[in-house]
Design a protein around this nucleic acid. Structure first.
Lengths: 106, 106
DNA sequence: GTGACATTTAGCTAAGTATCGAATTGATGT
DNA sequence: ACATCAATTCGATACTTAGCTAAATGTCAC
């Protein structure tokens, strides 16, 4: 799960996942969407694989990358779900000023 | 939003947020939960403030840190929500082998 | 097999980040 | 005023990471 958050910490990698949301894509097609070199993109792909966020299938000389949506969901919803009862979110988290009371902070 | 993911990429900072989920805490109390120095923790706090994930209130010589749950939720649910219709997740993402068809990748 | 193509690996540099101890700031109590 | 305490800032170091070019790998078509 740490690996997932590490992978998501880079905008390029998040964008790759967004592209893969719509359809599986080859490494080259993905790389064409970004203004960086192929090797750099390859390194990003490696991070995404490491985090198990993508599934890769070799097809001849192409590498087909596919989003593993469930891994993404499990990590993010799992984490945020530990905070609010998942989507019982809306509550805007009140913010009354503090009056200290020895021992615990209000 | 980039700042939020950056902030979440470190396990210490995620743990800080989890501690703040239960109650607001002072910088010192938070720091006591981790095996690193106070200055290091202070740097982590700065990253969390930068990402607007926490609200800080000065109370005498104490700094009270408070989770900004809505910011966390907006970022994470917003991101993952762009992938699946939020929780229409459960679908385990099928995985049939590919047969290439010129133009689009299946 | 040779050449062309897709992708990855290797080797490097520059920039960023986590960490520390020491010094600083700001508030409280005597 | 001074000492004390909470927290941050400063300055340095080690580590990680994103990026590059060049080279290697693997596959297809001829």
């Amino acid at each position: 799960m740490n690996a997932v958050f590490k992978a998501l910490s880079d905008p390029t990698r998040r964008h790759v996942l967004e592209l893969l949301r719509d359809r599986p894509m080859t490494a080259g097609d993905l790389a064409d969407h970004f203004p960086v070199s192929k090797p750099t993109m390859s390194a990003h792909f490696a991070v995404l694989r490491e985090a198990d966020l993508v599934h890769v299938e070799k097809l001849g000389k192409l590498m087909i990358y596919r989003l593993k949506l469930s891994v993404l969901e499990d990590a993010l919803l799992g984490f945020v779900g530990a905070f609010s009862a998942v989507a019982e979110a809306a509550k805007p988290a009140e913010h009354k000023p503090v009056t200290l009371k020895k021992g615990t902070i209000p």
